[in-house]
């Protein structure tokens, strides 16, 4: 029987290979830049490998890595940025002119969401995580996830209706 750390390494590799684009998509949405997102995902998985011995298996391995990624992205957003970089709203700005203007309102509305709501919206819609998984990643109860996403949707709806009125 291979050592547990080797088994975990294999499982982390499987999460990476199966879910890489989802991780990248969420990181891209949170950080607003594909290059930074790519680096964040690589670093997250490297950290997961380095600290796999502390993974106690109380939740899913994938959820554990998701939590590491969102925390890492939030740390990056909170860290002081070079002058050329943008503010925290960079999370929802397009990297280049790759989106139509008609979605600027939605983008701005997402940027205006509280941090937890925004993260949950990204996890729900860009990573297809269900409420249970989001609860595991964010460390809150399932009901809190449902309420937070409901509040986020209501907020987005108000903003969008206001902009089209």
């Amino acid at each position: 029987m291979p050592p547990r750390s080797d088994l975990l390494l294999g499982e982390i590799e499987d999460v990476y290979r199966h879910q890489y684009r989802k991780f990248l998509r969420v990181a891209r949405a949170m950080l607003g830049d594909r290059e930074r997102a790519r680096d964040a995902v690589q670093e997250t998985f490297a950290r997961a490998i380095r600290s796999r011995s502390v993974f106690r298996g109380e939740g899913s391995l994938e959820g554990w890595v998701w939590r590491m990624l969102t925390n890492h992205c939030l740390d990056l957003l909170r860290a002081p940025q070079p002058a050329a970089a943008s503010n925290r709203d960079v999370a929802t700005l397009p990297a280049r002119n790759d989106h139509p203007l008609e979605h600027a309102e939605l983008r701005a509305a997402i940027a205006a969401l509280p941090e937890q709501q925004r993260t949950m919206v990204f996890l729900r819609h860009y990573a297809d995580l269900d409420y249970e998984a989001i609860a595991e990643v964010t460390g809150v109860a399932r009901g809190t996830v449902a309420a937070t996403l409901h509040a986020a949707r209501a907020s987005l709806q108000r903003t969008m209706e206001g902009s089209t009125a």
């Binding site: 990476y16 890489y20 690589q42």
Partner: peptide, 25 residues
């Protein structure tokens, strides 16, 4: 609506060797 906004990163494939390198393997 979010689907239209997302950068789906469909052209990305990851680099597991780079992850291992960063992890000291």
């Amino acid at each position: 609506a979010l689907d239209v906004l997302v950068d789906r990163c469909d052209d990305e494939h990851g680099d597991w060797a780079d992850v291992l390198g960063r992890a000291g393997l």
